[in-house]
Deep mutational scan, measured.
Amino acid sequence: MTTFKLIINGKTLKGEITIEAVDAAEAEKIFKQYANDNGIDGEWTYDDATKTDTVTE
């Protein structure tokens, strides 16, 4: 398992969460579901060097 981080730069929700996932694709799926569940819809970027997804509304 690898640690992945999501940075949220939303209009109403800001912060970050960290998860353990098998790979980047699994982490992205989990993060996008989390964002959807919390009403966050924005531009996504991924930095492989830091294993960090960022969503900005």
Rank of each mutant, 00 (worst) to 15 (best):
E28A: 13
G42S: 04
N38S: 10
E57V: 12
G39S: 06
D48Q: 10
T12H: 13
D53L: 15
I8H: 00
Y46P: 02
D47H: 07
I19G: 00
F4V: 03
N36Y: 14
K29G: 04
Y34L: 07
G15W: 15
D37W: 08
G10K: 03
D48V: 12
K11D: 06
A24I: 13
Q33P: 00
D37K: 09
Q33M: 11
K29R: 14
K5F: 13
T45N: 07
E43S: 09
T3E: 06
A35P: 00
F31D: 00
E16Y: 13
E16R: 08
N38W: 14
D47L: 08
T56N: 07
F31Y: 01
I17V: 07
K32P: 00
I7L: 03
D41W: 14
A27V: 08
T18L: 10
K5H: 08
I30Y: 13
V22H: 11
A27E: 01
K14Q: 10
L6S: 00
T54P: 04
Y46G: 02
D53E: 15
K5R: 11
D53W: 15
Y46H: 11
E16D: 04
V22W: 13
I30S: 03
A27I: 05
T54L: 07
T50R: 05
K51C: 14
I19C: 15
K11M: 12
Q33G: 03
T2P: 08
Y34V: 02
I8C: 11
E28P: 02
I30K: 04
T54V: 08
A35F: 07
V22L: 11
E28G: 07
D41S: 12
N36L: 15
A24F: 14
E26H: 09
I17L: 11
F31K: 00
T12D: 08
Y34E: 01
T18F: 12
E16K: 07
G39I: 03
L13M: 11
I30W: 14
T3S: 06
N38I: 14
A25H: 09
K51N: 11
I19L: 06
F31H: 00
A35G: 02
T56A: 07
T18E: 05
A27N: 01
F31V: 01
K32Y: 05
I30E: 01
E28Q: 14
K32N: 05
A35T: 08
E43A: 09
T54R: 06
D23T: 10
K11P: 07
D48L: 12
I8R: 00
N38A: 11
G42W: 11
W44K: 01
T12C: 15
T50F: 06
D41E: 13
T18H: 08
D41M: 13
Y34N: 00
A24E: 05
A35I: 12
E43T: 12
T52I: 08
N36K: 15
T54N: 04
K29T: 07
N36S: 13
E57W: 09
T45S: 11
G15V: 15
I17A: 01
T56S: 06
F31C: 05
D23P: 03
T3W: 14
M1I: 09
E28R: 15
T18V: 11
D23W: 14
K11Y: 12
K11H: 11
D53I: 15
I7Y: 07
E57D: 06
I19Q: 00
L13I: 13
K32A: 08
E43N: 09
V55H: 04
A35V: 10
K14G: 03
I7F: 05
A49W: 09
K5P: 02
D47C: 14
L6Q: 00
I30M: 07
I7S: 02
N36F: 15
A27W: 05
I17N: 00
D23C: 12
D53C: 15
D23Y: 07
I8F: 11
I30G: 01
D48T: 10
I19H: 00
A21W: 14
A27L: 06
D37V: 08
V55M: 06
D47S: 07
D47K: 05
L6W: 12
N9P: 02
D37P: 02
A25E: 12
I30P: 00
K32S: 04
K11W: 13
E26K: 02
D53S: 15
K5S: 03
T50C: 14
K51F: 10
D37C: 14
E57H: 07
K51A: 07
L13R: 04
I40R: 01
G15P: 09
T18R: 07
I40T: 01
E43L: 10
E20Y: 14
D53P: 08
K14D: 04
W44E: 02
M1A: 04
A35R: 05
A49R: 09
V55Q: 05
E57P: 06
I19Y: 02
T45E: 10
D37R: 07
F4E: 01
L6F: 15
T18C: 14
T50E: 03
V22F: 11
G10T: 14
V22M: 12
A25D: 08
T52N: 03
Y34F: 11
I17M: 07
G42P: 04
I7A: 01
A21Q: 04
F31R: 00
D41L: 12
G42L: 09
V55F: 06
A35N: 02
D23I: 03
K11G: 08
W44A: 01
T52M: 04
I7E: 01
F4G: 02
I40Y: 03
Q33W: 08
T2R: 13
T45C: 14
K32E: 01
E26N: 05
F31E: 00
E26D: 07
T56R: 06
F31S: 01
G15R: 13
E26P: 00
T2N: 07
Y34D: 02
I8A: 00
E20C: 15
W44F: 04
E16M: 13
E20P: 02
T54D: 03
T56Y: 07
A24V: 09
L6I: 08
Q33H: 05
G39A: 06
T50K: 06
T45G: 05
T50P: 03
A21F: 12
D47G: 04
A49Q: 10
A25N: 09
A24P: 07
W44S: 02
I40G: 01
D53V: 15
T52R: 09
D53A: 15
Y46M: 06
W44N: 03
K29L: 09
K11F: 13
T50Y: 07
G42Y: 09
W44V: 02
M1N: 04
T54G: 05
W44L: 02
Y46A: 02
A49F: 10
A27M: 05
K14R: 11
I7C: 13
A24K: 13
T56L: 05
K32D: 00
T56Q: 05
E20S: 10
D48W: 12
E57G: 04
A24L: 13
D53T: 15
L13C: 15
T52S: 05
G10Y: 11
G42F: 10
T12P: 01
I40W: 07
N38C: 15
T56K: 06
A35L: 13
K29S: 06
V22C: 13
V55S: 07
V55E: 05
K11C: 15
T3I: 13
K5M: 08
G39C: 13
V22N: 07
N9E: 05
N9V: 12
F31N: 00
A21V: 08
T54F: 09
I8P: 00
L13N: 05
N9Q: 08
T56G: 08
T54K: 08
A49L: 12
T2K: 12
N36H: 14
T3H: 05
I40E: 02
N9L: 12
K11N: 11
T52Q: 06
K5G: 01
V55D: 05
D41G: 06
D48M: 10
D37F: 10
D53K: 15
E28V: 11
N9A: 07
A49Y: 09
T52G: 04
V55N: 06
T2I: 14
A21R: 03
G39K: 05
K11Q: 10
E16G: 04
E28T: 10
V22E: 05
K29Y: 06
I30D: 00
K51R: 11
K11T: 10
I40H: 02
D23H: 04
W44R: 02
N9T: 05
K11V: 13
E43D: 10
A27R: 01
F4Y: 11
